[in-house]
């Protein structure tokens, strides 16, 4: 028994750098989902396709001999374009948001297969991926360079989004999600704001896909199936921890923390012997529980003292 616990513990500690790295990259995705789901109030399924798109574009450009770091902006642009397609289906053709996302995601599978040259995956073994390039450059094991690199990109993105959503343009996107009537009455073109917001959100998802590919060494057409659920899990776990009442950059960091915690829970569950194929069921239950928490709280806790905060 004790040796079992010790085994699990060492397993956990050994995988910690990788777990954290994965947490940060899923955290990047979670910030993208936060933008569509929380800021724009659009449950956008495109991210499943755009995450894989980002990874695949980056992998194929690496194979073609591009500078690996240059593949990052190209992957982001590809993801943003996917987001724009969804936004156009929704705003111009008036297709419900959730269906628009599903359509784009569906179509992206074929596009991703084409980019891969009709194979289902591309390995970067033996090619100068970011993982190998950085490890060679700094001459330390890649698990540490991966950790540092993913942390820096994640932290940079938190800062960038914090700045962006504080500008006039970013505020207009927030107003569009919060109250479209009000936004239009202030002269905000709500269609354009949705397009910009979904472009940003899917560009970020593609960035996450690109990092997975570059840091783990392969891209796969199925690498992202169910991404939206993991993103949602991260967002809602983050909100539960940070209680949802704090400033914007803490909410964004909350999504990252949520993703890291989610990865940690999964790693522990796998170490405890949970079959990998149960992952999706466990995640879905986790998200359903987390999303229904406000309702559960309302029914179980005795009535709180009335009055509003800050009043």
């Amino acid at each position: 028994m004790i040796s079992l616990i010790a085994n699990i513990f060492t397993g956990f500690v050994n995988s910690l750098p990788t777990t954290l790295m994965e947490g940060f990259v899923w955290g990047i995705l979670a910030m993208g989902v936060y933008i569509s789901y929380r800021i724009l109030d659009v449950p956008d399924m495109t991210v499943d396709g755009s995450l894989a798109l980002g990874g695949i574009v980056s992998a194929m450009l690496t194979v073609k001999g591009w500078n690996v770091f240059l593949t990052i902006p190209i992957a982001v642009i590809a993801g943003a374009l996917a987001g724009i397609v969804t936004a156009l289906l929704h705003t111009k053709l008036k297709i419900p948001a959730i269906l628009s996302g599903i359509l784009t995601m569906f179509a992206l599978y074929s596009i991703n297969m084409r980019i891969l040259g009709n194979r289902s995956s591309q390995s970067l073994v033996g090619l100068p991926s970011i993982k190998d390039t950085l490890a060679q450059l700094l001459n330390i094991p890649f698990i540490y360079t991966n950790l540092i690199f993913s942390f820096l990109i994640m932290a940079g993105l938190v800062a960038l989004l914090y700045w962006f959503f504080g500008t006039q343009l970013g505020s207009s996107i927030r107003a569009t999600g919060c109250n479209p009537d009000m936004a239009r009455a202030q002269g905000i073109n709500t269609d354009n704001m949705k397009i910009a917001g979904l472009a940003l959100s899917n560009g970020i998802a593609a960035l996450a896909g690109c990092l997975f590919t570059q840091l783990q060494g392969s891209a796969d057409v199925n690498m992202a199936s169910g991404t939206i659920v993991i993103g949602l899990a991260s967002v809602v776990i983050g909100e539960i921890i940070f209680n949802n009442k704090l400033s914007f950059w803490i909410k964004l960091s909350g999504a990252v923390a949520g993703a890291t915690i989610y990865r940690t829970i999964i790693v522990i569950a796998l170490l405890l012997g949970m079959p990998t194929s149960d992952l999706k069921l466990v995640t879905a239950v986790l998200v359903a529980l987390a999303l229904s928490l406000p309702l559960i709280k309302k029914h179980t806790s005795p009535r709180k003292k009335g009055g509003q905060e800050n009043a």
């Binding site: 500008t167 343009l169 505020s171 207009s172 107003a175 919060c178 202030q186």
Partner: peptide
């Protein structure tokens, strides 16, 4: 008004009513 945004953010949105929104 936008309920999830604070008072000054709402006022700032109205301040540039009908104008170009920039960075």
């Amino acid at each position: 008004t936008a309920g999830d945004m604070n008072i000054e953010e709402n006022l700032a949105l109205a301040m540039s009513r009908g104008k170009r929104r920039t960075l």
